[in-house]
Simulated assay, not measured.
Amino acid sequence: MSTTKTQPQKKTYVHYHDGGVLGKRRVLTGNAAKPTFNEVPKIDMQRIYSDNLGDREQLAKEVGEACRNVGFFYAVNHGVEERILDDTFTAVKRFFHLPTEVKMEVHNQKTEKFRGYEAFLEGKLDPSTRGDLKEGFLMGEDATDPEQNLPVHHLPFMSTPRNQWPSHPTAAFFRPALYSYYAAMLTFSRRLLGIFALALDLPEHHFDHITQHPMTNVRAVHYPPQLSDADVGIGAHTDFCWFTLVSQSRTAEPALEVLNANGIWVPVPHEPHSFVVNIADFLKLVTGGAWMSTVHRVRNRGGEERYSMPFFFSPDEDATVSVLEGYRKSGEKYDEFGVGEYFQNRLVVDRRTHLEAEGSGGY
């Protein structure tokens, strides 16, 4: 009588950046799989504008559940004018179609904050790829930009310009369009931060004192169609802010994907009248890991051009954060983190080009 030995299943892993550190997650299937999410929940945000605190608290309960279990949700009926979103997408597409020399005038390697234009394949979050198949443009808080109306004399660390804007006349449309989007997203983000506070059983304005002059970014991104499965639009990573709001163009095949507890990639398709919201490292930090800063990536495999406009909302640059009292374990010691230092360290890791690492001498 012969017996057949069952071969042990080979372990496979998904690799990613988490908090600027390389990490991995085992892919679990069959009996080894854990209970986890297989889709991103949708939450109607109309109650965020209600004058009734009870309405906002009910919204916060739904948001809190999504933050604990998924780390992502769709903010449906967010209230930001569709006209602003449409106009900004039009401007973003137009900008990325400008000649390369116009865009490279404001190449992001010219600034410490990596503001400005990032060319194709210059980022490389996944070391197994040839680089991130995207081009982008980054702007953010800058007290020298009059559109932001920030008090320079109270913010000495922001006394020098941070943003770069192209000077060529063919790009003159871009700055006002991006600032229209920036202003709308900043206003919505301040409201949403209050909902997150309520979801943590805190007063609605608990975080306001460390988010008076928040670090903020709009990152306009263009993903061309991927012609090879070996490519990735942007490698797997977590974000480093309070949270991120993403406007994404409609594509037939979803490009944004989030990683669940079983190491399975869950698609996040375009949904009309909604933002994709994901909480990020600072909310994971203050909750002691109870809220998930979920790993995500982009693979644009549907043969279409894809555009997205994530808005990143962070605490003040000179603030410190630590684990909230309600999330501390007895006997444990908890350090404080300087927001600006943590942010800059992550920025350097995420924006350091592999071209530099290979000694190419520049772009």
Rank of each mutant, 00 (worst) to 15 (best):
P161D: 09
I195S: 04
S314H: 14
N77R: 12
S128L: 09
G123E: 14
G263A: 03
Y13Q: 14
E118N: 09
F312W: 11
S247N: 12
P315R: 03
M139Y: 00
I84S: 02
G131P: 11
N149L: 05
D18T: 02
A319Y: 15
T90V: 04
T4P: 00
F173W: 02
G30K: 05
K333M: 09
K110L: 09
K284C: 10
E341L: 04
T12K: 14
T353A: 10
D132L: 05
L355W: 06
V70P: 08
N163L: 05
H209I: 04
H206F: 15
N163G: 07
A143T: 01
P41F: 07
Q148A: 01
F96T: 08
Q109V: 08
Y182I: 03
L178E: 02
L198I: 07
M104F: 07
P214A: 12
L285K: 11
L193M: 15
Y74V: 07
P267W: 04
V276N: 02
T144M: 10
K333Y: 02
G79I: 10
Q46K: 15
S128H: 11
V221T: 09
L85I: 15
T294W: 02
T211W: 00
K11E: 15
A171F: 01
H237C: 02
S360R: 13
I84A: 05
K329T: 11
V106R: 03
D208C: 07
M104H: 12
V63S: 13
L283E: 08
Y363T: 11
I234R: 00
T244I: 07
N69H: 12
T144S: 13
V268F: 04
Q344N: 10
H296E: 10
A172W: 05
Q7Y: 04
D142P: 01
R346N: 14
R306P: 04
N31H: 12
E304M: 07
V40S: 11
V221R: 03
R219A: 13
N108V: 00
H206N: 13
K10F: 08
T3S: 11
T216L: 14
E257L: 06
A183C: 04
G303Q: 07
N278E: 01
G340H: 06
Q344M: 12
A184F: 02
A255L: 06
R115T: 03
P272E: 10
L227F: 03
F73P: 02
L355R: 09
K110S: 04
L198E: 06
H17F: 07
G331L: 10
Q248W: 08
A177I: 01
D126K: 12
E112V: 14
K10Y: 05
L283H: 03
L85V: 15
R56M: 08
L256N: 01
V349H: 13
G235F: 10
G64W: 05
H168K: 10
V323C: 08
S330V: 14
D231E: 14
E332I: 05
E317S: 13
G20N: 04
V323I: 15
R115Q: 05
V40D: 11
G123M: 08
P269R: 08
F37E: 09
Y307V: 00
A66M: 04
